[in-house]
Amino acid sequence: MTAPDDTNPTQDWLEAELADTLDEDYELELEDAVLSQEIKKIYKTHHPDTIDRRVYFQSLIRLQSELIKLQDWVQHSKEKVVVLFEGRDSAGKGGVIKRITQRLNPRVARVVALPAPTDREKTQWYFQRYVPHLPAGGEIVLFDRSWYNRAGVERVMGFATEDEVQDFFHDVPEFERMLVRSGIRLVKYWFSITDEEQQMRFLMRIHDPMKQWKLSPMDLQSRVRWELYTKAKEEMMAQTNIPEAPWYIVPGNDKKRARLNCIDHLLSLMPYGEVPHEEITLPDRVFNPAYERAVLPPELYVPAKY
């Protein structure tokens, strides 16, 4: 007698989808894999108590499920959310932004990372090029660096005069108060790392062919001008830490903990909750017995090399 078939195609498919999801996480985590053995040894020496991988993934997936609830609430309530990510080069801003947006709808949550201003933009009101990227109702905008470039890189590298910097300090509190009065929820994060940790991450980028593109001449100059950046950051926070839009500092030496702590904190600032959803049912497929699928020429298909 043949044993009953316990195979459940739907369950198999769901397990395969979950495996693909975890593969995405592993791909992101493997970004540090291509390193010289010597750099790996040094890195492990400086990070002996890094968070367990299983604990990290479990926590990350739980937080990302909450981010989806936040996204649904923002859409349903027509909220407007702006999150600024600032910090030194290699401080981990990009890593946390990737994890925040990884499972969200790009039509709801989008990332803004503006290049250096054009000659035309240099003649505009300083905040003008940022305003078009602000959210409408039901949107979340994550700025990977923001108008605070003026208080940081532009000041330290001499791209802005001291008068322009002081004008910025005078204007930015009122600009941000205007955003908040308009209904925008504005959150500002500074990712903080030590001198030694930045040096380590720069060395990792130098030795990792997949990360060398992240190193620019400007980044290398930031190592030379570490103390100037520190002074600029301290004055920036003293001048722009307002009750309507305070700064939140994320200790970033441990990248995984920094990501989890930042996402958890961001969620804690938002009064989101469950929103009503219509029940989704899959409609029946309509079959037309007279329809015959056309055979497409083989040259239209991508070669199956893998």
Rank of each mutant, 00 (worst) to 15 (best):
F57K: 01
I39Y: 00
D49N: 15
E24Y: 04
E17C: 13
E15Y: 03
E15G: 02
E17W: 05
D72V: 00
E31G: 13
D72F: 01
S36C: 09
Q64V: 13
V74R: 01
L28I: 05
R54I: 15
Y56D: 03
Y43F: 04
D32V: 06
L35H: 01
S59H: 07
V74S: 06
V55I: 14
L63E: 07
D49L: 10
D20I: 05
K40E: 05
T45G: 00
P48Q: 08
H46I: 08
D25N: 04
R54Q: 06
K41M: 08
F57Q: 02
E24F: 03
I42C: 02
R53H: 11
T21V: 09
W73D: 04
A33H: 12
I42W: 01
D23F: 14
Q37P: 06
Y43H: 11
E15L: 10
P48K: 05
V74D: 00
I68A: 04
Q64W: 08
L60Y: 05
I39T: 15
D32C: 04
Y26L: 14
D20H: 12
D49F: 13
Y26H: 12
R54F: 02
E31H: 02
T45P: 00
E38T: 11
K40D: 06
L70G: 03
R53Y: 09
I61S: 00
H46N: 04
I42H: 01
L22S: 06
E17G: 08
Q75W: 00
S36L: 12
K41D: 09
D23R: 14
